[in-house]
């Protein structure tokens, strides 16, 4: 019976989406089509889990996850503060901030730039999450070690982007600054920093995801009795999967919002870049 409902919902949504997508693209259809798709997946999930009697320790239905979310808002909030505000955000600020400062220093020398760019690109592709046990050993179980992992993860992608950004002004613009007899600081503030903004914000966007991953994975290596990574790994052990899914929901929403906020800044600051032309 429930399987039939699932099938009917699928067909209905499929038909609806084909109708919606066939029409002219507008702001409404742009939002409605993925929304219908998402809701259908949720309905299918709920119906299939109920119809086949999948045990809750393997896959809880969305309704159970929502219930668990509503019951455990206090726990989720504590974990959110511990992992995101203390671990991820502080590490993100330190990592990206220091990368920007070092990029400005590196930018003064062509030699250093040639040396650091290939190395930075190389390190940015390495599995840096692996440093988590080392930082946990150095800085203890608290949020400081998580922030340190986040610093290590965000530093190199940010550095590479920022160095490229600062070097992206063209020769004509630099010559103009020279004919104005501009000092180093004037060139930096009025030319180099503005032209580097699209690159900088691209780096900042990439780092939002890395920061959250770093903070969560580092908690798998040791943590006080709070935090999203800690909760996920211990509640999985206790087979309380509805709480695990609620925690993952928080992580997903946090990640998307974090990315969204940086994208908003990007749209305000770097609107002039050619890649934005429509």
């Amino acid at each position: 019976m429930t399987l039939a409902v699932a099938g009917a919902a699928w067909l209905l949504a499929w038909w609806l989406n084909i109708r919606l997508a066939a029409g002219p693209k507008s702001a409404i259809t742009r939002f409605a089509v993925p929304a219908v798709f998402g809701v259908t997946i949720l309905i299918m999930w709920e119906c299939v889990v109920r119809a086949l009697n999948v045990p809750g320790v393997i896959l809880p239905p969305p309704s159970a996850i929502a219930l668990s979310f509503a019951h455990n808002t206090d726990i989720l909030w504590i974990d959110f503060v511990q992992t995101f505000v203390r671990g991820a955000l502080s590490g993100y600020a330190i990592g990206c901030g220091s990368a920007i400062l070092i990029a400005i220093l590196v930018d003064r020398s062509l030699f250093l730039r040639r040396g650091i760019l290939p190395l930075g690109n190389f390190v940015a592709a390495l599995p840096i999450v692996g440093t988590a046990p080392i930082f946990v050993m150095w800085f203890g179980f608290g949020w400081q070690s998580k922030a340190a992992v986040v610093v290590a993860m965000t530093f190199f992608p940010m550095l590479v982007n920022m160095v490229q950004g600062l070097a992206s002004s063209d020769a004509m613009q630099r010559d103009t600054m020279k004919t104005y007899n501009a000092t180093y600081w004037q060139t930096l503030i009025k030319l180099k920093l503005p032209v580097s903004m699209p690159f900088a914000l691209n780096g900042l966007k990439i780092c939002t995801t890395l920061a959250l991953i770093g903070a969560i994975v580092a908690e798998f290596f040791g943590s006080p009795i709070k935090g999203m990574g800690f909760r996920i790994s211990t509640e999985v052990g206790r087979l309380a999967l509805d709480l695990v899914w609620a925690e993952i929901l928080v992580a997903a929403v946090t990640g998307s919002l974090f990315y969204g906020v940086v994208t908003l800044v990007d749209n305000r600051v770097a609107f002039w870049h050619p890649s934005r032309r429509r």
Partner: peptide, 12 residues
């Protein structure tokens, strides 16, 4: 999905 930490699903 690229903005969310899917790695958190790994233990589960």
């Amino acid at each position: 999905s690229q903005t969310i930490p899917i790695l958190a699903l790994a233990p589960m």
